[in-house]
């Protein structure tokens, strides 16, 4: 079995109050995820990423459409699917009243991990997520990054072959986010299939084998990162980065975007104002460019995205 997730026409409609038109949160999406792949779901706030995960993990009933996970039909075999998936929700939701260690043990108890295995695995997970020192600390007393790490550890405790991660690194400092990314990369090495959502373009670029870009409930692009980029290139813009110097202290770097390289360079040179040109680079389109192009969302949205968590949904 090489296809771990297959989704056809998956749709979720939320009825709105007061007779206005219902909200289509996820609008007939199709995709499939291969075994051992890290598959990224990238999109702005409210695009329908979380809703998709909630449907695929049995927390929310699809309005229509079909999904097969691990060879089992979502609508008929949810109980069996649940045993074999791990889910990390948008907000870290372990039990404040239990210690880090006990939280992991409880997670394993729910999934029927044999008693003889539990302790050993809990210790190993704490080790792996650099939380051994916090073994006996209440979840409530952990830092945000530690909570996130422990929540991911708990989702892996029953060793599922398929893991869903909803924004695993949002709100973490650079180092914690990096550590978590390394852990995710290691999951792939172990053959675990990973479905993750993120706002961070670099994260998707670094981690994912393939990316689906979802906007307003629809998938607008789905491909490997390199294919997405080369498509963006053939479709249009070129960016040139040029650095000027006034001979003494001042150095300024400017970026210019245009339809072709020649125009870009000419436009850039026109901004020289008598200064000397120190360096010039043509930039390959970044995933950011792809994203902006495909979503039609401009810089201001991206700024919200980059500033961490925009929007106020705490994962209801």
């Amino acid at each position: 079995m090489s296809e771990v997730i297959r989704v056809e026409g998956l749709t979720k409609t939320y009825p709105l109050s007061k007779g206005s038109t219902p909200l289509v949160a996820v609008d007939g999406i199709d995709f499939s995820v291969q075994e051992g792949e890290v598959f990224g779901f990238l999109g702005p706030n409210g695009a329908g990423k979380t809703t998709t995960i909630r449907m695929l993990t049995g927390l929310s009933r699809p309005t229509s459409g079909r999904a097969v996970l691990l060879g089992l039909d979502l609508s008929r075999d949810m109980a069996r699917i649940k045993k074999r998936i791990g889910v990390v929700p948008e907000t870290s939701n372990l039990y404040d009243e239990l210690t880090a260690f006990d939280n992991l043990i409880f997670a394993m108890q729910l999934y029927g991990v044999p008693r003889s295995e539990r302790k050993r695995r809990a210790e190993a997970l704490l080790e792996r997520f650099r939380l051994s020192e916090k073994r006996n600390t209440l979840f409530a007393k952990l830092s945000r990054g530690m909570k996130r790490a422990l929540t991911i550890a708990a989702a892996l405790a029953h060793q599922p072959p398929l893991v869903f991660l909803d924004e695993p690194t949002t709100g973490l400092d650079v180092m914690s986010a990096r550590n978590l990314r390394q852990t995710i990369a290691r999951l792939r090495d172990e053959g675990v299939t990973v479905f993750l959502t993120t706002h961070y373009l670099e994260e998707a670029e670094r981690l994912c084998d393939r990316i689906a870009i979802i906007v307003k409930g629809r998938i607008v692009a789905l491909d490997s990162v390199s294919n997405l980029k080369s498509n963006a290139q053939s479709a249009g813009t070129v960016t040139v980065e040029i650095t000027f110097s006034d001979g003494e202290s001042g150095v300024e770097t400017r970026r210019v975007e245009a339809q072709d390289v020649e125009t870009a360079i000419q436009t850039a040179l026109a901004q020289a104002n008598g200064r000397q040109m120190v360096s010039i680079n043509t930039l390959r389109p970044s995933l950011e460019d792809v994203f902006v192009k495909l979503t039609g969302l401009k810089a201001e949205v991206m700024l919200v995205e980059k500033g961490g968590k925009g929007g106020g949904n705490a994962g209801g």
Binding site: T57, G58, L59, K82, N93, L94, A107, L110, G112, A314
Partner: peptide
């Protein structure tokens, strides 16, 4: 309210 009920709903328990 705090979201931990979801953990139980995700578990293989009816």
């Amino acid at each position: 309210r705090i979201g931990s009920l979801e953990r139980l709903l995700l578990a293989p328990i009816r």
